[in-house]
Design a protein around this nucleic acid. Structure first.
Lengths: 215, 215
DNA sequence: CGAATCGTTGATGAGCTTCAAAACTCGTGG
DNA sequence: CCACGAGTTTTGAAGCTCATCAACGATTCG
């Protein structure tokens, strides 16, 4: 999907990137801070989230090959509209905004692909908007699990290939910890998923998907 | 904001656009239909909305100078992810997708500006996502009213310069008709807004904005 | 004028949040 | 090896927000 963007990226900024590693739990971007540049994930997993008061909503996850901080672009924005926090040890590179912008102006293919990437992200975002507005928590949880399977895949034992706290799953689903917990046990009882420790396995993908379909 | 895009647009497709008029209530795009092109609003107002079952969420409004149907772009999309319906008599132009894409590839400034436009829309979308997930209906209503003021401005009598049914206001707020009605009367009682007929006036913008601030 | 649509209000309950306590886990040190 | 405490998971109960349903008044329109 955004592969093309990523490939271009690697070519373009070979001499201008600053590589570094973020520890688990480290906050890489803080919502409201001035925009300095964009980040690119080599390896690891980063949550992109927004706050309102003491509540949190995870907007998306950025794992290997993904960009984040690009929400700082745009005509009227000088501060980051999101926070970004590493969920595990993550290796990144950082590109300063000025250089990123001039690169975009030089390399038209890159800019074009980034535009397509934005179009995809916008579609995703608006779908999630609809889900939050119209679906029950249980359905949203089903959406989240299927989405995570798509993004992270399965490990050798057939479980979702990511480590995610229930807190974060709740923040991604847009509900409270307890509610997500209850819905999870419901899904387990209905034999749509199963848990072993923190690992999640999808047993009946068809029925899970059925929960996410309209009406 | 997206003015630059609009200007480019006018230049680029002067010989390839098909102009037409949509009557009030006419559906211009139906969610799930194959993508054929993008639309551009000369005059009027169009709601961009998504459905789930029999429920509706209005994602945004496209008034004079705005593009819609561009969600059909992207790497993996062949059907429109949204519906579009005229809220009043609206004059539009339509550009076929092939021509639009080749134009984008030729005119780099246009593509670059469209990218910035997407970036803005993504930010808006994710803000609204947060609002839907974390705010009360009353706060979301306040957000909606302020947003509409920003987009449509005020008419000569100081009211919001758009005609919007309560149904549509509810669908834009992500709540039911009745709830929005109750919250509206609350806001009227608290003297933050006033109504005359279908017209809405914002009396105390400061307090209204206060409702939308965190914590 | 009657019918139909829309606006307004009340009553009820589902769905979810919140608070709090019990049960379980796990590391630490005696 | 067990006891202890801190943190997490699980369960229960109470309450709040909001959706739903139904009824009635107001307004429009054929």
């Amino acid at each position: 999907m955004c592969r093309l963007v990523v490939e271009d990226w690697k070519l373009v900024i070979d001499h201008h990137r600053k590589n570094f590693v973020a520890k688990k739990g480290e906050q890489i971007i803080k919502e409201g801070d001035p925009v300095t540049g964009v980040y690119f994930v080599y390896q690891g997993n980063v949550k992109v989230h927004k706050h309102w008061g003491d509540k949190e909503l995870i907007v998306r996850f950025a794992n290997s090959g993904k960009i984040f901080g690009h929400r700082g672009l745009g005509t009227n924005s000088s501060v980051y509209p999101i926070s970004a926090t590493a969920l595990e040890e993550t290796s990144l590179c950082f590109i300063e905004m000025d250089f990123f912008m001039s690169t975009l102006k030089m390399n038209h293919d890159f800019a074009f692909n980034l535009m397509l990437f934005y179009a995809d992200e916008l579609q995703e975002s608006e779908k999630k908007m609809r889900d939050l507005a119209l679906m029950s928590v249980k359905s949203r949880l089903a959406v989240a699990l299927l989405q995570l399977k798509g993004q992270f895949g399965l490990n050798s034992s057939g479980h979702l290939n990511l480590e995610l706290s229930k807190q974060d799953l709740a923040a991604y689903t847009g509900a409270t910890y307890e509610t997500v917990f209850r819905m999870t046990t419901e899904l387990v009882n209905e034999k749509l998923i199963s848990l072993s420790g923190k690992q999640i396995r999808i047993i009946n993908e068809e029925k899970l998907r059925f929960l996410t379909e309209e009406s």
